[in-house]
Amino acid sequence: MVENRPWLTVATHVVLVIGVLIVAFPIYVTFVASTHSLFDLVRIPMPVLPGSHMVENYLQAISAGLGEASGTAAVGAGRMMFNSLVMALGIAGGKIAISIIAAFAIVYFRFRFRMVAFWMIFITLMLPVEVRILPTYKVVADLGMLDTYGGLIIPLIASATATFMFRQVFMAVPDELAEAARIDGAGPLRFFWDVLLPLSRTNIAALFVILFIYGWNQYLWPLLITTDPEMVTIVISINRMLSVGDDQAEWQIAMATTMLAMLPPVLVVVFMQRLFVKGLVETEK
């Protein structure tokens, strides 16, 4: 695999550069669009170089969004990003907490119907949110959780995939470790806290990155249960900015908001990259 031929190096780089360009081009267009005034933007041809309205566009996006003029309340991207952040952190943290505890129960305790519980979790892997969205909506509505953070987070918090992943992680931990801990006098919770949790650190980090992005990008569920502009997430708000009927959509603000919406997932990936990769490739326990 580790061959060192010049033409091979060139070829691989060409492929990589093409890949990067394909992925980066739409993002570049979005960025360009967020730096022009609406007037420049809707002219044909569309500008391909950044314009001079970047600061004002972004300030408006953060503080006021589209403002009263367009019919929506003046809720800025700041507030909506905060909503998204709460939701994404809640979903990522909640999913990890619940699934790691569920996996702990399945792997380390012999209780009645253990395999039944396991297979039920496994089967729900096949049922995405969309399939159970109506009953879930009914339950959340009846509990009065519409337009609350709880309503945004809790229905999405169970995760068969994460449970399954932690189960695999725990099964790779040698039994003798649990036995040594028992001899050392550590009860199950102590063992979980002092041994399993530190051993799963990198896996937790990797999962956190994936789940944070998953939570941040949630669309259908927040769209259904948030009506209060104060509770709207940023992903939903972009959509609302563009659904303006016969009016001219304020593309420059929408694009600025889009750029802002991309930022937190990118930051999470950048800062957790090392742990993330380690968590995905590490096998030794």
């Binding site: 040698p174 003798e176 470790l177 036995e179 040594a180 801990a181 028992r182 001899i183 050392d184 006098g185 550590a186 002092d194 041994v195 530190p198 051993l199 650190r201 326990k285």
Partner: peptide, 20 residues
């Protein structure tokens, strides 16, 4: 009695040291 209450210590074949 639980292992911890038996006043014994055990050495395992794979050592079973806490890796972290």
């Amino acid at each position: 009695l639980e292992p911890a209450e038996r006043d014994i210590a055990m050495v395992f074949q794979n050592y079973a040291l806490y890796p972290h």
